[in-house]
């Protein structure tokens, strides 16, 4: 490559340098446009959610916030997207005029068919993610990873990577892979960001009231501080 470059300079005296540089710039520009603008468009297919879901409306109607529908089961597992049976509790029949609700009741409730929701945050099969560890133990907000989805009035378009089959949310909206907020990317490095750097203290003092008041036999016994810090020796923490 460098040889050609040098060569271009060398022959510039002959007066052919102009077109050569021009073509170089043309090539450069074309590839930049292709790589940054066209390629991402080609890479992702756009899919609409089966039902346009209004989070705001639902959050207002329920009592316990996100956990009203996205709850923990007794065995510690997380329910994720609600199943039809759960929705039916309120939507046995259409409660209003909203065409989305009508569609939901007619197509799904009436036929007992589960809604094939497209999950923005769906991680690959090899990933084990413990909601309990993050929400219950580390007391993180849903928004840290899921962003302001609870404030959405419409379901946004689900973009699927044509090669990997993943949601675009994993790589992040920004094709360069850069992010501003914690919830904008969900690749392994983003998990690692927290897991390798933060040494979160759960010493009795640092915990919020009333937890700090509760006896914590384990920590007392061992003098250990709970850590997020999982260095390179912890593949199984997040993989299965």
């Amino acid at each position: 490559m460098s040889t050609q470059d040098d060569k271009a300079k060398e022959v510039s005296a002959d007066g052919v340098a102009g077109p050569i540089i021009l073509f170089f710039i043309l090539g450069l520009a074309a590839s930049l446009v292709f790589g940054w603008i066209i390629f991402p468009k080609l890479l992702y297919s756009q899919k609409k959610q089966p039902i346009d879901f209004n989070h705001v409306l639902h959050v207002e109607a329920v009592e316990e916030g996100c956990e009203s529908c996205h709850f923990f089961r007794e065995d510690g597992s997380f329910s994720g997207i609600p199943k039809l049976a759960q929705c039916v509790d309120c939507h046995e029949d259409a409660q209003g005029e909203d065409p989305n609700e009508v569609k939901f009741v007619e197509e799904y409730v009436a036929n007992g068919r589960e809604v094939p929701w497209l999950v923005y945050a769906r991680q690959p099969d090899c990933v084990f993610f413990s909601h309990a560890a993050h929400v219950k133990k580390a007391e993180m907000d849903c928004g840290t990873c899921h962003g302001h989805i609870g404030e959405s009035e419409h379901s946004r378009v689900y973009e699927e990577n044509r090669i990997t089959g993943y949601s675009r949310d994993i790589w992040g909206k920004n094709i360069s892979g850069l992010k501003k907020h914690t919830w904008e990317r969900m690749k392994m490095d983003d998990c690692a960001e927290c897991h390798t750097t933060k040494e979160i203290k759960t010493d009795v003092e640092t915990l919020p009231w009333p937890i700090n008041w509760l006896p914590r036999p384990y920590e007392k016994q061992t003098g250990n501080k709970a850590r997020v810090k999982t260095v390179k020796e912890a593949c199984f923490v997040c993989h299965k």
Binding site: M1, Q4, D5, A8, P19, I20, I21, F23, F24, I25, L26, G27, L28, A29, A30, S31
Partner: peptide, 8 residues
């Protein structure tokens, strides 16, 4: 030159 520019 175009190809090289493109590659770069």
């Amino acid at each position: 030159s175009f190809v090289i520019g493109g590659a770069a």
